[in-house]
Amino acid sequence: MTDWLTFALPKGRPYKETVELLRRAEVAGPELDDEESRSLLITCPDKKVRFLIARDSDVPTYVEYGAADLGIVGKNVLMEGEPKVYELLDLNYSICRFVLAAPVGADPNRLLDGTAARRVATKYPRMTEAYFRSRGVQVETIFLHGSIEVAPKVGLADMIVDITETGRTLRENNLQVIEHLWTSSMRLIANRASYRLKADRIGPLVERLRALTAPVAQSQ
């Protein structure tokens, strides 16, 4: 298997777009279906590539430990986990924003003036803490695995830090964006040893993906 490449891909929302990109770049063959199947390990013998379908937060782990040579994962996951992997390329899709949000009508200045103990619910506790530390505001960070938007409604937290693509879920839960913290998009990551040992295969592949994902000039 030394001349094969193993990719770790995240299941869920970005899956379809990921598969389309890999097919267009001729990295993946027809074996990799753009509908998620039950199979979590898909082999494309013609391309000498295997795809391992994993939870997004596990993708960097497979890559860091060398179970996968390459991975595709959101910057949000990389920022929270700080895995020891190489970040090779911004793939410029699945773009979403990290926002600080609070119930509509709440006064942002009062929430952040530090005069009262505030609680922030998030899936990203490390980054949330780093952000508030850098602002000099002391908050209590509450770690949740999902449904963050409900936390203010039920009195669990005063604010939330979460990612949003369109802002729809926030509006539906009567939340307003107080601040835009960071932007996230999908990234191509590599295992540190594979990057060297399989340079012959990874180098051209990066260039193909780069050509396909470069942002259209001045469109934004």
């Binding site: 030394t2 890559v63 860091e64 060398g66 020891k84 295992n191 540190r192 040893a193 060297r196 040992l197």
Partner: peptide, 9 residues
């Protein structure tokens, strides 16, 4: 130096 399957130098 790097070896196959070990993610760190």
């Amino acid at each position: 130096g790097y070896a196959p399957g070990v993610g760190a130098p």
